[in-house]
């Protein structure tokens, strides 16, 4: 790997990091897990003047529930930690289904959920999960102030996020559930470690068989991760049966904006969305590879 020349900073605190960001302006790039940034600089598609490695900043590697029941995931919490988390396994089925489907063990050892959402790759899996769960990104400024940006507004385009210059995404947040969480993540990939041909995040909050809140989002079938708002609304307040499932599947397939490419035709991908929603909601295991 022979990237262009760059300056490297490894701040030991957020304050130091903000200092470096200020000095370099839009020439600085934050390095979290590096699993998206390093491939880019390797190919010289990106040539930032300064790389700000945040890995030495304490207090960012956590994931825990707040007293209000919301889940917070720090900027250095790795995919691997989420994959093995007992907390996610017991209470966040969509997230614990997603983590092992991301990339391969080596990438999961380094890559972060927050970094993935910041990267805003339309084929990134976490942004769909965050959309489905109504998650947000907490951005922090040099003066210590923070703002919460819903992921639906955070991802503004392919590889573009809503962070202002000088802001650092310090954590992601998932609000408390109304009821019990059920759901899953289904992913059609050509090979383990592949990005999704089609990915589907389903996150339901259910009490007594009634869906209080439904979250459905798609990966790989549009210029961004797609929140299936119509399908979500069609399920809210209802219970799952053949006709509500069919309707949600149809609406989700309509929401997809797939393109024909080397991974398959637009028609095929739309069909897989339909099949996946049907399978996820009727609790049938997908036999997707």
């Amino acid at each position: 790997m022979y990237p262009s020349r760059f300056h490297y900073e490894a701040p030991r605190s957020l304050d130091e990091a903000f200092g470096v960001l200020q000095a370099y302006g839009d020439e600085a790039k934050i390095l979290a897990g590096g699993q998206s940034l390093i491939p880019l600089i390797k190919l010289r598609f990106a040539a930032p003047a300064c790389i700000v490695d945040i890995n030495n900043i304490p207090g960012l590697d956590f994931h825990e529930e707040d007293s209000d029941g919301s889940l917070n995931i720090g900027a250095l919490c790795r995919h691997r930690t989420l994959e093995r988390s007992p907390l996610l396994r017991s209470k966040y089925p969509t997230m614990s289904a997603t983590a092992p489907l991301i990339a391969d063990p080596m990438v999961r050892n380094r890559g972060t959920l927050v970094g993935s959402v910041c990267h805003a790759d339309p084929q990134g899996d976490w942004a769909s999960v965050m959309l489905a769960m109504g998650g947000e990104i907490i951005a922090r400024r040099a003066d210590g102030s923070e703002r919460a940006i819903p992921v639906s507004q955070f991802v503004v385009g392919p590889f573009q996020n809503a962070l202002a210059q000088g802001e650092i995404a310090v954590r992601a947040r998932v609000p408390a559930a109304r009821g019990t969480r059920t759901g899953t993540y289904l992913k059609l990939e050509r090979r383990v470690g592949d990005f999704a041909t089609v990915g589907l995040a389903v996150a339901l909050e259910v009490s007594g068989g009634t869906i209080n809140r439904a979250g459905l989002a798609l990966t790989g079938v549009g210029p961004n991760n797609i929140q299936c708002t119509a399908a979500e609304q069609s399920l809210a307040g209802k219970s799952l049966n053949a006709s509500t499932i069919e309707q949600a599947a149809r609406l989700a397939a309509e929401a997809a904006q797939p393109k024909t490419d080397v991974r398959g035709s637009a028609e095929y991908k739309r069909h897989v969305v339909y099949t996946f929603v049907t399978r996820a909601l009727s609790n049938r295991q997908a036999s997707a590879a």
């Binding site: 059609l188 041909t197 398959g264 035709s265 095929y268 069909h271 590879a289």
Partner: peptide, 8 residues
Amino acid sequence: LLPDRVWE
């Protein structure tokens, strides 16, 4: 034999 071809 990618899945989309078999499906088609």
